[in-house]
Deep mutational scan, measured.
Amino acid sequence: LVRYRTISKIPQITLNFVDLKGDPFLASPTSDREIIAPKIKERTHNVTEKVTQVLSLGADVLPEYKLQAPRIHRWTILHYSPFKAVWDWLILLLVIYTAVFTPYSAAFLLKETEEGPPATECGYACQPLAVVDLIVDIMFIVDILINFRTTYVNANEEVVSHPGRIAVHYFKGWFLIDMVAAIPFDLLIFGSGSEELIGLLKTARLLRLVRVARKLDRYSEYGAAVLFLLMCTFALIAHWLACIWYAIGNMEQPHMDSRIGWLHNLGDQIGKPYNSSGLGGPSIKDKYVTALYFTFSSLTSVGFGNVSPNTNSEKIFSICVMLIGSLMYASIFGNVSAIIQRLYSGTARYHTQMLRVREFIRFHQIPNPLRQRLEEYFQHAWSYTNGIDMNAVLKGFPECLQADICLHLNRSLLQHCKPFRGATKGCLRALAMKFKTTHAPPGDTLVHAGDLLTALYFISRGSIEILRGDVVVAILGKNDIFGEPLNLYARPGKSNGDVRALTYCDLHKIHR
């Protein structure tokens, strides 16, 4: 019993810090008490220290592992850092350059016999395009090294910054494609005289377009951006097909006994025919423009016929181009109408809503002055909100995010209106959640004399007048207030005048 009563005193000691020596009952000389009392004092002292730490809000209350900052290894790049964003855009520009100039170089340097010394005699450094290609190869190699040090988000939505895990993730992902696209074939085969082989191998750079397509997928929600990307894709495919079309004609031209190829026909049409040795002929500019003209006309199913396939190889390629053109029509131009419709969806919704308003007016036989006010209010409210119901949009977000959005939407009023000066951010967040926005066209009466005042109004834009009878008592403008002081009276009061809008007004109100 003594032991039980001794232990039962522990909660009292913990909360009230009572010393055991003052209790005459606990001072009985028993061996059990002498053993338990020192333990009680020690526990009391420890609990006292913990309570003191909690009340003082000291940093040592938290466990040590929670006080440590997340460790980022040296030379690790955050995937959302500004440097990584700028670097990704730079790589994107280099990939676009590669997609345009690599097929052009591979096709127009394929057994090209233009006048001038061969590239091997001039030297590697004197070729501007080769120098640019070398810079692109170096940048792609540097990009691989950067990807080995860039964080990523795993399946659990955690940012991984450990170098080993980053390397394994990159090896399992895009490393092989990036490595093949970054191989400097110019340096590996330079001086061997195989410019045709170098041009063909350099087309491996186009593998990076797969990554670019995935990154550009984030802009699919913007109709104008999608339309622009589709047109660029169409032009890029036409450019690639033009390079292939020229390569076919250029390879067949020296081996044909009869002059029936499209390059021969082009030379005869523009007065620059090929001679018996295969030299001469149109310039590279004429060849490229004509090839691009043929691919565009074939892809769009126009086909004027002034550039036509004559050999079997050219006919087979033309059939493939027609098939590609039909697929592009289905996948690209078939979506253009939907994209344009999405661009004008706001206008369509406006006309639909206006039609419903006019049908309501016609069905209920609203008189002319009231009908005009109804239409003007709808037009003004639509121009202010673009038909978007803010309350319906915010309803799907958590309250903390709703408060931040409301604070942002009402920031101008909260910053410049005098009653809100000096208020804490928590108070402003709470008030912003209570605001209701209303609009009024010129001549609209917001409050009639004798109406119950259940709200306090803040003028965000425009001006109003307060009338008693036919006498203008006051004219209020931006950041002015009218209405009933909230919670100042037990019952809502009545208006002693009319409140009429002089201009288009936007008002925020808080109800009782």
Score class of each variant (00 low, 15 high):
333 F>E: 03
274 Y>Q: 01
302 V>G: 01
223 G>W: 12
93 L>C: 01
419 P>K: 02
164 G>M: 14
211 R>C: 01
123 G>C: 01
237 I>P: 01
243 C>M: 01
369 P>I: 02
273 P>L: 01
356 R>A: 09
221 E>K: 08
371 R>G: 07
241 L>C: 05
396 G>R: 08
422 G>W: 01
375 E>Q: 09
84 K>Y: 04
171 F>L: 13
412 S>N: 10
325 G>R: 01
104 Y>E: 01
143 D>S: 01
410 N>H: 13
86 V>S: 04
383 S>T: 09
431 L>K: 03
262 W>E: 01
433 M>F: 08
186 D>W: 10
246 Y>A: 01
298 S>V: 13
78 L>W: 06
83 F>S: 08
115 E>S: 14
408 H>I: 01
117 P>H: 07
201 L>C: 04
164 G>P: 09
428 L>N: 03
132 V>I: 05
437 T>P: 12
160 V>E: 14
388 I>C: 13
260 I>G: 06
221 E>Q: 13
398 P>F: 01
104 Y>S: 01
192 S>V: 07
260 I>T: 04
121 E>I: 11
349 R>T: 11
431 L>P: 02
138 I>V: 07
79 H>S: 01
363 F>C: 09
378 F>L: 08
274 Y>L: 03
64 E>G: 10
95 V>R: 03
429 R>F: 01
325 G>P: 01
66 K>L: 12
115 E>P: 14
435 F>A: 03
175 F>V: 01
279 L>A: 14
163 P>T: 05
256 M>F: 09
65 Y>M: 13
394 L>C: 03
104 Y>F: 14
221 E>C: 08
432 A>R: 01
95 V>K: 01
265 N>Y: 01
248 I>S: 01
300 T>Q: 01
446 L>I: 14
386 N>I: 04
196 E>V: 13
245 W>P: 01
408 H>K: 01
81 S>Y: 01
414 L>M: 08
269 Q>R: 03
416 H>Y: 13
418 K>V: 09
133 D>H: 01
442 P>E: 05
367 P>D: 10
297 S>R: 01
198 I>A: 05
351 H>R: 08
184 P>L: 01
333 F>R: 03
262 W>H: 01
244 I>R: 01
196 E>P: 14
73 H>G: 14
377 Y>S: 13
159 V>Q: 03
82 P>K: 04
385 T>C: 01
405 I>H: 02
127 Q>P: 06
374 L>Y: 01
222 Y>K: 04
380 H>W: 15
292 L>T: 01
83 F>K: 12
285 K>A: 13
444 D>E: 09
172 K>A: 04
360 F>A: 03
161 S>W: 06
401 L>I: 12
270 I>F: 03
